[in-house]
Simulated scan of single mutants.
Amino acid sequence: MKLHIHHETRYDYETSVRSSIQRLYLMPSSFATQKIVSWAIAAPGIDKALVYTDGFGNQVHVITSQGPHDHVTVIAEGVVDTQDASGVVRGFKCQAPDSVFLRQTTATEPSPELSEMAREAAAKHPNELERLHAIMAELKERIAYRIGTTYFHTTAAEALAEGKGVCQDHAHAMLSIVRFLGMPGRYITGYLVTEADDPATASHAWAEVLVPNLGWVGFDAANGKCPTADYVRVATGLDALGVVPVRGSRRGGEVESMTVAVTVQPAAEQ
């Protein structure tokens, strides 16, 4: 399936900014079941950006804006050709050892409730793949998808205790449990088109877990399924904080506001 993505992030400032710097995690990778047909990033300073591949296999752009300005706009847009592999990720290159993804972070640190969920799942489901599907299903039931009920710094433990959250919270909770069980898990950002004629309006996040004898497999607890051809995979990290699509700092500029607009839909046939 060919999907067209348009992702626009805009920062506005009440007073003039003297200079700003932004780090972008907006470049999808090509691997066995995902190919970049076209992709471009438009932003101030993108022509002189520092571009590098980090230890998790992400292509990162660092851009700077010099001189007085009252806003910064970053647009990533392109077409990606995807295939359904039942969530299995093949051919993606990540230099970091798998053991790095056993590391809990502030966002994923397990609470007693998360730890108990992990122990119960391990006791009921000796088979790792069945266990992971059961964990995913339970998280979908116990954390209702509610936009605006959690914040960027909400932890997995807090989301589970509140019983509501968004895809970031589902991914953090999944990672908390699998890492507690000794299975490497990584946080993934990307995009999802929900229906053939229904454009998405936000970026998405899910977890990937290293399954014995199978490899890395995606688990989207927010939707209760493994990623399909409706998903575009962009960045890999330990949690949401490590792979914010656009993140930066500035000199000057008071009262920052940010707006994000994302559309994901099937690409028009040429």
Results as ranks from 00 to 15, higher is better:
215 G>H: 08
252 G>P: 08
86 S>H: 11
21 I>R: 15
132 L>M: 13
237 G>L: 01
114 L>S: 05
163 G>F: 09
186 R>N: 10
86 S>T: 11
125 H>F: 15
244 V>N: 15
77 E>T: 05
38 S>G: 04
80 V>N: 08
253 G>A: 10
39 W>Y: 11
45 G>P: 01
118 A>H: 07
98 D>I: 02
46 I>P: 01
199 P>E: 03
91 G>K: 06
153 H>S: 09
177 I>C: 13
171 A>W: 02
32 A>R: 13
190 G>Q: 06
233 R>L: 12
169 D>L: 10
198 D>R: 14
260 V>I: 13
67 G>I: 09
162 E>S: 07
254 E>K: 14
85 A>W: 10
146 R>C: 03
167 C>N: 05
156 A>T: 08
225 K>F: 02
234 V>N: 06
130 E>W: 05
95 Q>K: 12
238 L>G: 04
113 E>I: 12
199 P>W: 03
92 F>S: 09
136 M>G: 06
241 L>Y: 10
268 A>P: 07
110 P>V: 05
54 D>T: 14
88 V>S: 03
218 G>L: 01
133 H>L: 15
47 D>T: 15
126 P>Y: 13
44 P>Q: 10
235 A>W: 12
211 V>D: 06
191 Y>C: 11
214 L>Y: 00
255 V>P: 02
150 T>M: 09
68 P>R: 15
253 G>M: 06
90 R>S: 01
260 V>L: 15
34 Q>K: 13
211 V>C: 00
107 A>W: 08
218 G>F: 05
1 M>E: 02
92 F>W: 09
247 R>S: 10
166 V>W: 11
57 G>I: 03
177 I>E: 01
52 Y>F: 14
37 V>R: 03
209 V>S: 12
84 D>H: 13
216 W>L: 00
124 K>V: 04
42 A>Y: 08
226 C>R: 04
110 P>Q: 02
68 P>Q: 14
109 E>C: 08
167 C>E: 03
51 V>G: 08
58 N>K: 03
257 S>A: 15
27 M>S: 02
114 L>I: 14
37 V>M: 07
46 I>D: 10
73 T>D: 15
233 R>S: 06
263 T>G: 08
52 Y>L: 06
9 T>P: 04
22 Q>G: 04
76 A>W: 13
108 T>Y: 14
144 A>M: 07
38 S>P: 02
270 Q>H: 15
95 Q>S: 14
153 H>I: 04
92 F>K: 02
201 T>E: 09
249 S>T: 12
167 C>P: 03
83 Q>E: 12
145 Y>N: 14
175 L>Y: 04
255 V>R: 14
241 L>S: 12
204 H>G: 11
147 I>F: 09
216 W>N: 06
14 E>N: 12
54 D>E: 10
106 T>V: 08
27 M>C: 00
203 S>I: 01
101 F>M: 12
217 V>W: 00
178 V>K: 05
257 S>H: 15
127 N>V: 13
77 E>Y: 11
247 R>E: 14
